[in-house]
Amino acid sequence: MDERAFSAGQAFLLSAKLFWTHKLFGAVKDEVRTASPQPKTLADVAKVLSPSTTYAYFEWFERHLQKMKYSGRYGLVPHADGLRRDLLARLDVNSPLVQVDPALPMPDYYTSVDVHQHPGGVWSDELAGFVYEEGARSTTPAMGVKHADLHQRFTDLIVSEGKPKRILDMGCGFGKSTRPFYRDLPEAEVTAVDLAAPCLNVAGVQASQDQARNVRFLQKNAYETGLPAGSFDLVTSTMLLHEMPPEKIEATMAEAARVLAPGGRMVHLDFHMLPDAFARFIHYGHAVRNNEVYMEPWAEMDIAALLRKQGFTDVTIAPFAEADNVPPDAWRFPWTVISATKAA
């Protein structure tokens, strides 16, 4: 595939996605806003939107723009496939910063669905880390190219409350959530874990380019890390929890409690707080259309109660602004920060 055609084909999709984010979503929202009587429950919203042609287009575009992004003629997967040898040559399989574990079992919930409609998921193909990295540039189109800001803002928020020395980033992917920590806190030791070796390898390339010495990427399961008990001051994750079934979330929180030192803080960024029935309807629809099977059960979980039951204190659940000027009527994820402290 020629690079110019790939770039134009992807630019077209992103532009269509922006239209979807602002115009189509705005039109759908208006249909609900002007409905009479005002829908109050999920079922009410469904009653307004199910017969709506605008909503059918909204749904179609949500599913198919993402599908075309990954799988179409100018899709990320065929594009990476065409560059296979070059891309593999960019990976440093002997990087001292990365430890993969080919024997690590992949959980069923993880392998049975291709989340984000990424064929083969982020774990099965050696190139999946590159594909995911490229794809992540346009997941939150309302913010355009400034997606990196989201992770930086989250790190800034945590650091504003104190500088942790020993940090664990669970479900680090290709290291986008880890990077602001190892760069902004050179004194800290950062450990990042993920199930996907192809993503960890890409994270390693970036960290070497950054000349980072204070980070390591380990192929491990977040809810069974095998890391020493009480060995971290901060456990964090970004967009990990919604990918897990409730019992694994519970196990992940218990694992965080185990590896945290007494008084240590746990802060997760994910999609959780849904202010009204419309937001809920749109989010659950997104989950179905984007192959995010566990998004809905996670949003329905009483996470605060679970954390208190597990012995955490100072539990807070708060909305998170992913950018400075979030347009009020554009589609967006329900960003939420979930934090808690391990009792001292």
Binding site: R4, A5, S7, A8, G9, A11, A16, R73, Y74
Partner: peptide, 12 residues
Amino acid sequence: MAMAQELYVTRD
């Protein structure tokens, strides 16, 4: 949509 994308690639 596939056609529109092709058209845009050609324009580009």
